[in-house]
């Protein structure tokens, strides 16, 4: 599965070399080629933060009711609960990206050396590099961090480091929202020590994408948090634009947390 495009091109080159010697093998049809790209497509989260239930058995793991927060994490969690601490239109981080709220789809595209994920409601894509070169030594912190992936059978194992710690709560609602729909919800911060290990696989005959996310963040949590989030393949949906700053209606922001 790894690097299917390169394998495809390579097989084509071999076929050219040997074509003078014996009949070429049947060419891979576009549909067959597409079927190898298991993650490629448009997906929408099943379940939401408010209601994690998806179609059985694809229900998201709820965030823990008693998060193992460090003292720093506890302080940060309370800080994020104050809407004044949130910058309007600030990007989300990778955990939020992969959590979904059921309103906006993501699109995944598989290229030879990277897999690109675009969330409709988040300005920045995630790029998962599959070139096998590992993380750079001197990594500039970024909103999405640096992700590398490798295939273990049908599971894409993704390792992410290098986030900038500026993300709003990982369990916030929407790409640019500072708070959950219910303001009483506990905020789950992430620091610049965030280290994610994800196991992505497609199940349910290709219709459900499972992302098991293990959150390691020793600055924020005393032990890892593991969640499973599910997405449904939705080829009927077209990706649209979403730019938070288009019409922010600043006259309202001071009043109702329009951030």
């Amino acid at each position: 599965m790894k690097d299917v495009f390169r394998a495809f091109l390579f097989s084509g080159a071999v076929a050219l070399v040997v074509s003078g010697c014996r009949p070429s093998p049947p060419a891979t049809t576009p549909s067959e080629k597409a079927s190898q790209l298991k993650l490629t497509g448009v997906w929408i989260a099943v379940g939401t933060f408010e209601d994690p239930a998806g179609p059985p058995p694809w229900s998201n793991t709820p965030w823990p009711s008693q998060p193992p927060l460090t003292p720093w994490g506890d302080t940060e969690s309370h800080r994020l609960a104050d809407i004044k601490s949130v910058v309007p239109c600030q990007p989300a981080g990778p955990v939020f990206f992969m959590s979904g709220i059921g309103l906006f789809p993501i699109q995944i595209l598989e290229a030879p050396d990277q897999i690109v994920l675009q969330a409709e409601n988040i300005a920045m894509p995630r790029r998962i590099y599959t070139h096998g070169r590992g993380h750079p030594d001197d990594l500039d912190p970024s909103w999405m961090g640096h992700s590398i992936g490798r295939w273990e059978g049908d599971v894409l194992v993704v390792d992410t480091v290098g986030t900038n710690g500026k993300t709003r709560a990982m369990n916030g609602v929407g790409a640019n929202a500072g708070v959950s729909i219910e303001d009483k919800d506990r905020r789950f911060p992430a620091s610049d020590e965030l280290h994610l290990v994800e196991r992505l696989r497609v199940v349910a005959e290709g219709e459900i994408l499972e992302d098991q996310i293990t959150i390691n963040d020793p600055k924020t949590y005393t032990s890892p948090i593991t969640l499973k989030h599910y997405w449904q393949r939705r080829p009927d949906l077209n990706m649209m634009e979403y730019y938070c700053g288009e019409n922010p209606r600043p006259q309202d922001e001071a009043n109702f947390a329009g951030r």
Binding site: V173, A177, P248, F256
Partner: peptide, 10 residues
């Protein structure tokens, strides 16, 4: 609508 941008707390 579950707010994508805002809290609707106001």
């Amino acid at each position: 609508p579950a707010p994508a941008h805002h809290s609707f707390a106001g």
